[in-house]
Computed example of a mutant assay.
Amino acid sequence: MLATNQIVYPDSDGQPMADNTKQFQWITVIKTNLDWLFRDDERVFVAGDLLWYPVEGNPKYRVAPDVMVVFGRPKGDRGSYKQWLEDDLAPQVVFEILSPGNTEGEMERKLQIYARCGVEEYYIYDPDRSILKGYQHSDDFFLDSPGETILERIESINDWTSPRLGISFRLIGDDLQITHPDGRVFETFDNVATERDLLLTDKQQLEADKQQLEADKQQLESEKSKRDAKLRELGIDPDTL
C-alpha cells in the first residue's frame, strides 16, 4: 500500500491520444520519423502523448505533448516523464497537432507551460486548415523575473529549419511537407507500404529472371550434350573442336 503522504503521478490523464484519424496520422508520422532520424543517438528520447511532470511534488501541473524530443536523455520505456528524475531536462522540442476539440484557452495554457518550463521550439499544426505555427525560445530582458523565458512566434515558418532537429517545414498548397536534414520527405505508412510493394515486385522479378536464366542455361547444356553425342556418332571428338 502507498504511504499516506506519498504523491501519485498517474501515467494517464484519461484523455485520448487523438480525436480523429487525421490528427492521429500526423502524430504518428512525426513521431516515427523522428525515431528514425535519431535512431543511432542513444541520448535522444522521443515520445508521443506521454505525460510530462515538470515539477516534483505537483502532480496536477502536467502536460502531454503530442510529440516531444529530449536531447540528453536515454531512449527507453517510461510511464511518464518526471523531469526531476531526468537530470531536470525539459523537452527541447514539442509538437501539437490540433483537432476540432482543442480550444484557444487550452492551447494558450500549453504555450505558457512550455515557455515557463524552458521548451526551445514549439510547433502547432492544424491539419484541417493547413495552418502551421512555430515558436522559438527567447530571452526577454523586459520580463520582471531575471532568467525567465518566453516563446516568440516564428514569423516566417514556411521553409523554416528547426535549429535543434535540422528538419524543415514547407507549406505546399493545403499540405504540410516536413523533410529530413538530407532532404528526404517524412515517410507515411502509405509511402512505406508502396515502397515495400515495389521492392517486393522488383525482388519477384529478379527471382523470375534468375529462374529464366537457369532454365536457359539448362536448355543450352542439354542442346550441347545432344550435339556432342551426335558428333561422337560421326567419329568426331567434340573436345577437339
Rank of each mutant, 00 (worst) to 15 (best):
T103I: 13
F189W: 08
P146T: 06
F71A: 03
L200A: 13
P146H: 08
Q83P: 01
D190L: 14
A215W: 06
E233P: 04
Q219H: 13
L85D: 14
M17P: 03
T28G: 08
I150M: 12
S145D: 11
L165G: 00
P127W: 04
L176W: 02
E96Q: 10
D209I: 12
N5M: 07
Y125G: 02
I167C: 06
K31I: 00
I178M: 08
A115Y: 03
S130P: 05
S130F: 10
S222H: 11
S156R: 12
D216G: 04
L132Y: 03
L2Q: 13
P54Q: 03
R153S: 10
I124M: 09
R170W: 03
V94G: 00
F45E: 01
Q15M: 12
V55N: 05
K60L: 07
G147M: 08
V93N: 00
R39A: 07
D140V: 06
V69G: 00
G79L: 12
D66E: 11
G147N: 07
P59V: 02
Y9L: 02
D40E: 12
I131Q: 15
G48T: 05
G72M: 07
Q25V: 06
P163C: 07
N20R: 06
L165M: 10
R109N: 08
E120N: 05
I150R: 14
D159T: 03
L51R: 02
L34T: 01
E195R: 15
F142D: 08
W84C: 04
F24K: 06
G76L: 10
K226F: 10
R196S: 12
T103V: 13
R39L: 04
S162F: 03
L34Q: 01
L34W: 01
S12A: 07
E104V: 15
V70N: 00
Y135Q: 03
R62W: 03
P146A: 09
P59H: 07
F45S: 01
K210G: 14
D209A: 13
D190Y: 14
D159P: 02
E120I: 00
L143R: 14
D197A: 14
V119W: 01
I150A: 08
S162G: 06
S225N: 10
L176H: 03
D190V: 14
M1T: 09
M68C: 12
L165E: 01
I113K: 02
V67L: 04
E106R: 06
T32Q: 08
L111G: 03
Q205I: 15
G166V: 01
E152P: 01
